[in-house]
């Protein structure tokens, strides 16, 4: 390109005035980079405009920039940052509050759950204690009932002493002749071996006639070891023998554990 002609066209003066289009501006810059003369010419034109505009100034006040600096200080220092910070702070506050709230809810939920299970445990305990009380009351009633029956004025007490098969064994028979019942207190008898039961016999002496009045069934499970049996016989003595499970027709005398006579 013809640099002289390009400069002479007056486009550089327009460039400095700022009246060119964007494309023309880019073109001028492109040539200015390529050609030193064009760059110098632009600077010289600008210098002339600077001279004229400067001469037209009514004169800046002294320390004009100091006044400006104060305004810059007002505008710039960290104000957007402070705003951003405070905005962030309130954001975090919101998050923190909701987190606390959520934690609180969770705590309440867990606490409630724990209380519920505690209530369940206590309710269970209460039911169990109630059952125990009921059991004890039943037992007591039963025992009282038993005691009343044993204390009945129609009851004869017969002590049964230990025999050869088991010299240390003992038992007591509480015989209510009127009610035709006998209560055997078998506290002093050893536990029968598996497959055997104690059998209670009503005896008549002269001649010796044994009549079975029953088995001491569930010996191990009977806690107070008092057994109630029917006895319609005119008994003169009671004996207890160990017999195979289910009992025998006649007593096995070798296994006679206790024996005692009634009446005077």
């Amino acid at each position: 390109m013809d640099v002289e002609k390009y400069i002479a066209s007056g486009i550089l003066e327009q460039y400095v005035a700022g009246t060119l289009s964007e494309e023309e501006n880019l073109e001028v810059q492109h040539y200015a980079i390529e050609h030193q003369e064009i760059q110098h010419e632009i600077e010289s034109i600008e210098k002339a405009v600077l001279e004229v505009t400067r001469a037209a100034s009514p004169g800046l006040m002294p320390k004009s920039f100091e006044a400006l600096r104060n305004e810059l200080n007002e505008v710039i220092p960290f104000e957007p940052n402070i705003k951003r910070k405070s905005a962030a702070w309130t954001n975090y506050l919101g998050w923190a509050a909701s987190l606390l709230f959520a934690l609180g809810l969770l705590w309440l939920y867990l606490e409630n759950d724990q209380l519920k299970s505690k209530i369940e445990v206590v309710t269970e305990e209460k039911t169990s204690v109630e059952k125990q009380i009921l059991d004890i009351r039943n037992e007591m009633t039963h025992t009282e009932d038993l005691l009343n029956q044993l204390r009945d004025q129609n009851v004869d007490v017969v002590a049964l002493g230990g025999q050869t098969a088991s010299p240390k064994a003992y038992a007591k028979a509480y015989w209510n002749k009127k009610a035709k019942k006998v209560f055997i207190d078998a506290q002093g008898l050893p536990e029968p071996p598996p497959g055997f039961n104690y059998q209670v016999w009503s005896l008549k002496l002269d001649p010796l006639t044994p009549t079975s009045i029953g088995l001491l069934e569930n010996f191990v499970l009977n806690e107070n070891k008092v057994f109630e049996l029917e006895n319609p016989n005119e008994s003169q003595a009671f004996g207890i023998t160990l017999e195979p499970e289910g009992g025998s027709e006649s007593p096995t005398l070798e296994q006679l554990y206790t024996l005692g006579a009634t009446g005077p």
Binding site: T53, S57, P58, G59, L60, R69, L72
Partner: peptide
């Protein structure tokens, strides 16, 4: 700010001249 101050000293009178015109 120092660069800005220098630019100000280079051009402020011209700008004032244009504005006052």
């Amino acid at each position: 700010v120092a660069a800005f101050e220098q630019l100000h000293s280079m051009y402020a009178e011209n700008i004032l001249g244009v504005i006052n015109n």
